[in-house]
């Protein structure tokens, strides 16, 4: 199988994840994700770009909860990309991640159907950001209107800022300098973000351990998110 050599990637240690949902909250604040309320969210219209898949193992009282944060896996061969008729989702050559261009999206929702990870969410309405949440809107991120698709971007605004800062200072981006919101807030440091093309980076080191695996790897999507499987 052809291995894609990309740059940015993520390692999530499932042994460390305790399902606290801090990453989901941070992601929502960073990326101007509206809250849709109980009824909408339970009908499958929550807008979270990431979710914590919780599974139970065993029978009560000998029971254990497993948590797995899942967001867009930034596939190297992304199934969502070729099916879009208007190139609204396509591959960024610089960062080697999947971009979603809101202004170009016409809302066919085909990308979401073809995503094996159900990572995409759709703006069913013009969601509101009620006061005081409108004061918290991130100026670096577009606020999306109704009828467009969206998904995790690996906080591309932070990647670009990190790269530009480094460029202005005449150096390369250092390992750990760029952090998406989820990795930044993770209290157990379960989420690590970094550069896979650098074999010395933390993500490369972690991904080379025996615990590393990717979601639905057999589909050939070449995900850019590596999970360290739970041994506990």
């Amino acid at each position: 199988m052809e291995e894609s050599h990309g740059k940015w990637g993520m390692v999530i240690d499932l042994d460390r994840c305790n399902g606290c949902q801090a990453c989901v909250t941070a992601c929502s604040l960073e990326n101007n994700i509206p809250a849709t309320g109980y009824d909408n969210a339970s009908y499958g219209r929550g807008m979270h770009w990431m979710r914590i898949i919780r599974t139970w193992e065993g029978e009560y009282p000998d029971i254990k909860a497993n948590f797995q944060p899942v967001m867009c896996q930034q596939c190297g061969r992304a199934p969502c990309e070729p099916v879009c008729p208007v190139f609204a989702t396509q591959h960024s050559q610089a960062e080697e991640i999947n971009l979603q261009v809101y202004n170009r999206c016409i809302g066919t929702r085909y990308c979401a159907n073809n995503c094996p990870y159900t990572a995409r969410v759709f703006n069913w309405f013009d969601w509101e950001h009620p006061e005081p949440m409108n004061y918290y809107l991130n100026p670096d991120v577009t606020v999306r209107g109704r009828g467009v698709m969206e998904k995790c971007t690996f906080c591309v605004q932070r990647i670009r800022r990190g790269e530009e800062t480094a460029k202005a200072q005449g150096r390369g981006v250092q390992d750990g300098e760029v952090q998406p919101a989820c990795a930044q807030v993770c209290p157990t440091n379960a989420i690590v973000f970094g550069d896979f093309s650098d074999p010395e980076s933390r993500v490369s080191q972690l991904a080379s351990t025996q615990r590393s695996a990717r979601l639905e790897e057999s589909l050939g999507t070449q995900p850019r998110v590596v999970y360290l499987q739970s041994l506990l």
């Binding site: 499958g44 809302g107 159900t118 995409r120 069913w124 109704r146």
Partner: peptide, 15 residues
């Protein structure tokens, strides 16, 4: 005018 949400589609039933 209101949005696609007035239809019954959701995640994962996008179509």
């Amino acid at each position: 005018v209101v949005g696609m949400g007035v239809a019954g589609i959701n995640r994962p039933v996008f179509w």
